[in-house]
Design a protein around this nucleic acid. Structure first.
Lengths: 231, 231
DNA sequence: GATTAAAAGTGTCACTGAGACACAATATTA
DNA sequence: TAATATTGTGTCTCAGTGACACTTTTAATC
């Protein structure tokens, strides 16, 4: 019941990424202005074809393409989902593996500012933008996944620089889920997660000096057993 | 920065499924004995190439392949993950989109019994089986996902026939997560989820007659805000 | 028919972690 | 020095799970 490879038209396979960051209290997505067909002139997600000579896995394809656009490696990367279909690409049946990535805005700001091919687009502006393929839908799904994960894990730290304060993390979380959370709840989770350590340094923040935290070496994302509700 | 399709060797793209069921208090996976190279004679996951003339999406590829082996459509189907790499298939760089599916054992028992090409293999026997590709790893990941989802949703109902009792659901859940749960907790969740309705019929079960339940029409899986801990 | 065993189903208290919010501590600024 | 802003703590409430005793309803056995 196995077939010879050549019996079939192999579908078009690409790797795209939804790279999020939080900047100016807004969730942003990295979009690239397309200069080739199809959808030339429209905005699309950064991505492209696997280069089997350079990529050991599709993860590397995603990272390579992101590096081309941002000059940096995202702090978090996971698979979102595969989108496939006969009609999503005019060239024929296509399959896109979409990754979902996070990075601190500071890591890439210089590069992005000088290249006008790639831009951070506010999540709310996506709706009214000329977007290629089904990338609008893909971004929506990625946003939902990010919001969901934010309720039971600490992934939003990957939108922050190495050292960060509770206040910054709180702000990023609130931006992502679009609701306010209790500072106290966040602190409890920071302690319970045991994935952060305090840095012997404090930073000014408009009031009392804030304690700096960093992610411990080699720790994985902790999943909590309850969701935040976000009032 | 876009490339012509023909510049690249398109990687080998296949769709496989990890179809689970619970039978005799054991979690089982549908495995197929391979009759073609590579790995002829070994056991592998049901799957194959996309047929762009018959499949509108990769979901249909997965369903079509499962139907070939079991004669039935799984009650639950979702994407698990893509597995890719230069060395997982001797034919070259390969990409496999793996689905994760559930079905009631009763739906397919007759078919499976008559075909010796496809078999339900107990999850604990996989380790010592001659398995093709990286399918052992894939099954392990699928099992973890199933266990995780079982803690915060009711997906295990899709391992049961249309009408089922609380006792049956409890047993299936316990088999999946490998721990006992409180009957009371399960009943509370059944009520809170609001995705089941009682059937005006009871069934004998060795003691007091048990209330039959069924999944309401058109409802989606409900995700709870807390995990079960399973003592 | 009475007795026992087995599973279904209920009542309720304890425990855990999030929500809410008051309050204390420490910085800046006027 | 006082006002203000933000950090950080103390603690009560609330919701949902865990635990477990207890009741109900059936089949099986005597």
């Amino acid at each position: 019941m196995e077939y010879d490879i050549n019996d079939f038209k192999n579908p078009l396979f690409t790797v795209d990424s939804v790279l999020f960051t939080v900047k100016d209290e807004q969730l942003k997505v990295l979009m690239v202005k397309r200069s080739n067909e199809p959808f030339s002139g429209r905005w699309g997600l950064p991505g492209g074809f696997v280069d089997v000579d350079r990529d050991d896995t599709t993860d590397m394809t995603a990272l390579r393409k992101l590096k081309e656009k941002t000059g940096a490696k995202p702090q978090y990367l996971e698979q979102l989902q595969v989108f496939s279909g006969i009609s999503r690409d005019p060239r024929g049946f296509s399959v896109t593996l979409v990754y979902f990535a996070l990075i601190a805005e500071q890591e890439v700001s210089s590069r992005i500012d000088t290249v006008d091919e790639a831009q951070w687009i506010g999540i709310n502006q996506i709706e009214s933008l000329a977007v290629a393929f089904d990338h609008k839908l893909i971004i929506k799904q990625a946003q939902e996944r990010l919001q969901q994960k934010t309720l039971y894990s600490m992934i939003p730290v990957y939108c922050l620089p190495e050292y960060f304060t509770v206040g910054q993390l709180k702000s990023v979380i609130e931006t992502i889920i679009g609701k306010t959370i209790q500072r106290k709840s966040l602190i409890r989770r920071i302690e319970a997660a045991d994935m952060f350590e305090t840095v012997d340094e404090k930073v000014k923040s408009g009031g009392r000096l804030a304690q700096l935290y960093k992610v411990k070496e080699g720790v994985d994302i902790v999943n909590f057993e309850r969701n935040l509700s976000g009032a």
